[in-house]
């Protein structure tokens, strides 16, 4: 039988914390190794008990769940943080993910969802409550929409020259290939660097590689 998943419950709400402990102990593969009522206590108990998963509330006295997550992930990167909160706001959601949380579950969840989430994050997976996952996808898609317009627009000739530079061709070789003068190639290269805010040929090559412009 595999080792039980060691869980620390960090929540200042007395009924929730005690009730959750009893609920989770009903699962044969779970072991609740500790309870914390503040973020500071959670960080201390993590160092002492080395749980696999911390069930982390956000609003707690002394040190909130966000700060506690940052501290725990810095000191014990292998501990997985699963946020269990009333907060539906995007601000908390993204801040907790940035702090290193592996999952985000709302207290409105079904018990089965919470149990599934604990097992998922214990395995190193990410679990996001469906409504919060949708926000993450929306954020990602909006980022995709913004990216192209924020990139400098290159002319077809500039893109062609950038591709050849990235392909290792010299200025003279590019001039011969495109049947233009070396000074014209040099002029295009200068424009490229100015548009892309780059300073060297090496940076041009790296830009082309990062943007899928290799020949």
């Amino acid at each position: 039988m595999p080792d039980a998943i060691k869980i620390l419950v960090a929540d200042d709400h007395t009924v929730m914390r005690s009730g959750l402990k009893l609920l989770l102990e009903g699962e044969s593969d779970f072991e609740v190794v500790g309870e914390a009522t503040t973020g500071g206590e959670a960080t201390r108990l993590c160092a002492q008990l080395q749980p696999n998963v911390v069930l982390m509330d956000i609003g707690m006295p002394e040190m909130n769940g966000l700060e506690a997550t940052r501290v725990i992930k810095k000191e014990n990167p292998s501990i997985h943080i699963l946020v269990l909160t009333m907060h539906r706001s995007e601000e908390y959601f993204f801040q907790m993910l940035e702090a290193g949380a592996s999952g985000y579950v709302l207290k409105g969840a079904e018990t089965g969802e919470l149990i599934h989430a604990i097992r998922a994050v214990a395995q190193g997976d990410v679990f996001l409550y469906p409504s919060m996952a949708r926000r993450l996808v929306q954020e990602y898609l909006s980022g995709l929409e913004v990216t192209p317009s924020s990139e400098p627009s290159l002319t077809p000739r500039e893109r062609e020259i950038l591709r050849l530079i990235a392909g290792g061709y010299s200025g003279k070789e590019i001039a011969e290939k495109l049947v233009i003068s070396p000074s014209t190639v040099h002029s295009h290269s200068t424009n490229l660097m100015a548009k892309l805010n780059l300073n060297t040929r090496h940076e041009l090559v790296r830009y082309a590689r990062d943007h899928g412009l290799l020949p």
Partner: peptide, 15 residues
Amino acid sequence: WTNPLFLESIRALLN
């Protein structure tokens, strides 16, 4: 109840 976890927590505590 409103939240299932509240009910389940209370149910566990009232044993």
